[in-house]
Amino acid sequence: MPDTFAPALEALLMLATEPVSAADLAEAVGEPEAAVDAALAELAAFYDSTGRGFELRHVGGGWRYYTREEHAELISTWLLEGQRGSLSQAALETLAVVAYLQPISRGRVSAVRGVNVDGVMRTLATRDLIEEVGRDPETGARLFATTGYFLERMGLSSLDELPPLAPHLPEASALEAELADLAAAAVPESQAVPLVEADDE
Rank of each mutant, 00 (worst) to 15 (best):
A38P: 08
I104H: 02
T139F: 10
G61I: 02
G61H: 02
S157K: 07
H168F: 11
S86C: 14
H168Q: 05
G61D: 13
R108C: 09
L74T: 12
I130S: 02
L156G: 04
F46Q: 08
L79T: 02
Y65W: 05
V115G: 08
D128L: 15
Q83V: 06
T123L: 03
L169V: 12
V120I: 09
R153T: 05
F150G: 01
T139H: 14
D118G: 00
R64I: 12
E55P: 13
E171L: 06
R84N: 15
G61A: 13
A183I: 03
G60A: 06
E171A: 13
Y66S: 03
R135H: 15
A166Y: 07
G107Y: 10
R57F: 14
L87Y: 11
A174G: 06
E178I: 13
R153W: 07
R68V: 12
I104A: 10
T146R: 04
I75S: 08
H58G: 01
V117I: 03
S105P: 15
L162T: 04
N116K: 10
G51M: 12
V98E: 04
D118R: 14
G114T: 05
E132N: 08
G60N: 10
T139M: 05
D128V: 14
D128Y: 04
A141Q: 07
L159G: 13
L182K: 10
G140H: 13
E69S: 06
E70L: 06
N116I: 03
S158N: 02
L162A: 03
R135W: 07
F144W: 14
P163H: 02
I75A: 14
A44V: 04
Y100C: 12
V120H: 06
R84P: 00
A166K: 12
G53L: 13
L80I: 09
Y66T: 04
A38Y: 09
V115Q: 14
D48L: 04
E138C: 01
G148S: 10
L40T: 04
A166E: 12
L129A: 07
E73I: 09
E55T: 10
A41P: 00
S105M: 07
F150P: 00
T126F: 07
T67D: 11
A145E: 10
E152H: 11
A99M: 01
D48C: 03
Y149Q: 11
A91E: 11
E178A: 13
I130R: 01
L165M: 11
A180Q: 06
L175M: 10
H71S: 13
E55L: 15
M154A: 09
M154K: 06
E70P: 09
R113V: 02
P163G: 03
I130M: 05
V117N: 01
V117S: 00
E42V: 09
L165F: 08
G61C: 02
R135S: 12
R135P: 03
D181R: 15
E171G: 10
D48E: 15
